[in-house]
């Protein structure tokens, strides 16, 4: 951790994980990142999680997507294994959240006027449910919520996590984005490409690990990496990868 000349908090990015139409990846494994429009790849949990997670397959697609990217970021940062719960927060942005799950759930309500309503599906009709699943799986007891930007930039969760960290609201955060494809009911392509990306942010760490850089916000709320302004989410990921793999 350090404080910049302008008294803004700078924190390390120590892990990156993603699932996009271009593939599944993590910062230390892949040197290229893209967030194109298109169908998302199928996720095999045995490729992602070190221990079996039987409930994973029962979750909705939005949750599986977000949890995969979140798990990859934690693993990339060397934080996926734990014995005691940790004060690590999670903040994620979304445009559509679990809206497709909402539609799927309500279709269980209609036929029997509630008699067949699925409690299992209803549990995932909250945009933040998957963060709770992630908190349980990885023992994360910090601040934990979902937000939606009025004008999506993909960087609001990062900005919000940095604000929490600067106000003493925790020293480690996962921050990212998660969206499945635009729900069918809209009948049109989504506002943003489907995919999930998470960053592991840490004020300080003692593990032997090379961070990707130090991220901060300036007075206008713009995101900077090592003092250089970043225009959007893909640029932030790719800049981190370039620094790590080509430094």
């Amino acid at each position: 951790m350090s404080w910049g000349d302008d008294n803004t908090l700078r924190v390390h990015i120590t892990g990156i994980g993603w699932v996009t139409a271009a593939g599944v990846g993590a910062g230390r494994v892949n040197d290229k990142f893209a967030l194109p429009q298109g169908p998302l790849p199928r996720i095999d949990p045995s490729d992602i999680f070190e221990k079996p997670w039987p409930n994973f397959r029962r979750m909705d697609r939005y949750s599986r997507l977000g949890l995969t990217a979140l798990a990859l970021a934690l693993k990339d940062a060397g934080l996926s294994r734990w014995t005691r719960k940790r004060i690590i927060g999670i903040i994620a942005s979304t445009v559509y959240g679990c809206l497709q799950t909402d539609v799927d759930y309500y279709k269980t309500v209609i036929p029997g006027r509630g008699a067949n309503a699925s409690p299992a599906l209803f549990s995932y009709t909250l945009a933040n449910s998957y963060l709770g699943e992630g908190a349980i799986r990885f023992g994360l007891t910090g601040t934990n919520y979902v937000l939606t930007e009025q004008h999506p930039s993909g960087l609001a969760a990062l900005r919000t996590a940095l604000n929490h960290m600067s106000m003493g609201g925790g020293s480690k955060f996962l921050a990212g984005v998660c969206d499945v494809e635009c729900p069918d009911i809209f009948g049109e392509p989504g506002k943003t490409p489907a995919g999930a990306v998470f960053f592991m942010l840490e004020r300080s760490f003692t593990r032997k690990i090379s961070p990707y850089g130090q991220v901060s916000t300036d007075k206008e709320g713009e995101i900077n990496l090592d003092g250089n302004q970043i225009k959007d989410l893909p640029a932030l990921v790719q800049t981190c990868l370039d620094r790590f793999h080509h430094a």
């Binding site: 549990s123 963060l131 709770g132 699943e133 007891t141 910090g142 919520y145």
Partner: peptide, 12 residues
């Protein structure tokens, strides 16, 4: 003042 946490025990 404010505090926000997660139980990390159960979804519902």
């Amino acid at each position: 003042g404010w505090g926000i946490t997660n139980d990390a025990t159960h979804i519902t």
